[in-house]
Amino acid sequence: MSIIDIIRRGKKLKLFIFIGIPMIYLLIFFFIPFLIAFLYSLGMFKQVVYQYVFVPEPSLEYYSGLMKFPGIFKSIQRSFYYASLTTLGTFLISYPLTYYIGVKLEEKYRDLAVLIIFTPFWINFLLRVYAMRFILHEAGMINLILRLIGIISEPIKFLGTDTAVIIVMIYSYLIFMVLPLYGVLEKLDVELLEAAATLGATPFKAFIKITLPLSLPGILAGSLLVFIPAVGEFVIPELVGGPNTTTLGTIIYSFFLRVRGVTGWGIGSAAALIYIVLILVASYVYMKFVGGEVRLG
């Protein structure tokens, strides 16, 4: 065996340790389960006594079962409605915020400001949702304040409505929009804006022509980070919503953990697969759309 062979073999062994071990882990516990769940949703695993056997006859039984589920289309539509408003809401709230922190605020205070935004998100997510439910209640703080300033005379029943779900979703997902936006705005070269001003651009025009296009990657990343999980959200509609706030997420959840059994899981897996496909299509269309806008500008 030549020396080169030994070195080559050494490299292969190292590659196996460094790349192989983590990839095998992800393959077994992440990618293969996807494939299995896909086959499961096609009815290709049948339960025989306590074991599952593979039956190579795909059927769309679970998919049609899902389509026959009352209100399924309304729920999918609602999931996208919630996710879109959450994405828009988090964007509108965090853009001015991150712009101020990343561009206007003195550099020495920036880390502190980011830490202040960050800290509440280290409190358990479920506890934050519970806190929102506490203040959104009919006899809660928000209703009290609205009544004191005279906007309403009767308490509003927020809990159980779309409004409550969307408010809590915006609150919970805010950080996923803030971080990527801050990432691009903090790197923004202020000299570009000064150059624009010297050349006679109004601050507004400089903002439209320079700041906004340069923050586009952050906007894109932020909206995908919010939108993709928001479509499948089930904790928030379950905790602050009601019978009229079923979403794709709550449907998957109830088929899996309430209906259970082979059928429940089959339909649940089918719903998850449909979720992934819809998300991929939506993200693709969105990126095409935003990308197209950049070229126009």
Binding site: F29, I32, P33, A37, I252, W265, S269, A272, Y275
Partner: peptide, 10 residues
């Protein structure tokens, strides 16, 4: 949620 249920099925 998708990760979770695929792992459970697996």
């Amino acid at each position: 949620i998708v990760e979770a249920l695929t792992l459970l099925v697996f």
